[in-house]
Design a binder for these strands. Structure first.
Length: 278
DNA sequence: AACCAGGTCTCGA
DNA sequence: TCGAGACCTGGT
């Protein structure tokens, strides 16, 4: 299929999603109950395993990136980062998988998060192809006979089971969540043990279409401090970011995140850096 | 071998 | 309301 401005590598390697990996020139991953393979060549995207409509929805091809760039380019710094990672898009994730995944993502790192989620899917998820498992439903997590300890989730295991129970019982309603505005959604989400301000913002941004949400993790906090001189409590920093970048602040956040990520990787692998030889 | 990780919870002032 | 510690585990 032909795509609008889009960079598949940047998008799938930006830490938003945890179930994709690249083998050769193909990206392989699971979305809902589909095993999907993608390969990009210029403005052509080769899709196996699902429809083009689903892909267009998933990668938010309905977002006008140029309009968004114009809106969030409030200073030279963010403008140059955008220029470097042009085509990076936010991904429209399933609400249950996204919320459960980011609950698990707390105080960890992306390689480990991927392993935890892969393990969770293998242990409780439905096998949709040979060796390919869907993300487990709340019921599957609650009624699975396996010991959750084998998923190596640490203290997050209790949070996850508690959350699954709230969703399964109806005490926490994903459909109701989807109808709420940004502030209402954040408030609703924070009732869940394990979901605080940052995770709630990730869920709002990545699965609820609240593009003004600006999750502040340690990297964004560092960027906000070093670039804009903003420090302090979560609400203060995130609030500044939403005002500074405007209604698409979440997009700005994702570009800052990937820039921080690549910068640190570059510094680490730079010959002559003492860290390299430790 | 330490330090850190897409933070949150609990508790005390 | 705010700061300080603890926290499972594994990556780097």
């Amino acid at each position: 299929m032909r795509t609008p401005l889009f960079n598949l590598d940047h998008t799938l390697d930006s830490g938003q999603v945890f179930r994709w990996r690249k083998e050769g020139e193909w990206w392989r991953g699971v979305v809902k109950d589909r095993y999907i393979q993608l390969r990009q060549d210029g403005d052509r995207l080769e899709v196996k395993g699902t429809s083009e409509d689903m892909i267009a929805h998933y990668f938010r091809f309905d977002d006008d990136l140029e309009e968004i760039y114009a809106e969030i380019s409030r200073d030279e710094c963010i403008a140059s980062i955008i220029d470097r990672f042009r085509g990076l898009r936010l991904i429209r994730q399933d609400i249950w998988e996204c919320s459960a995944s980011y609950l698990l993502a707390t105080y960890s790192n992306v390689p480990r998060i991927k392993k935890m989620i892969d393990s969770l899917c293998r242990t409780y998820g439905r096998e949709i192809e040979n060796g390919v498992f869907a993300f487990p439903t709340p019921q599957e997590i609650l009624e699975g006979e396996a010991d959750i300890a084998c998923c190596r989730l640490g203290y997050r295991a209790d949070w996850l089971r508690n959350y699954a129970g709230m969703v399964y019982s109806g005490e926490f309603d994903l459909y109701e969540l989807a109808t709420k505005d940004y502030q209402g959604a954040v408030e609703y989400l924070k009732r869940v043990k394990g979901i605080g301000s940052k995770v709630a913002d990730c869920i709002a941004l990545f699965s609820l279409d609240h593009l003004e949400a600006c999750p502040v993790d340690v990297r964004i906090a560092r960027a906000m401090r070093e670039i804009y001189g903003v420090t302090g409590q979560y609400d203060k920093v995130a609030g500044f970011a939403r005002r500074h970048f405007g209604r698409f602040a979440g997009y700005a956040q994702e570009y800052l995140y990937i820039a921080e990520d690549r910068t640190r990787k570059t510094i680490r692998s730079c010959p002559g850096n003492p860290d390299t030889h430790s």
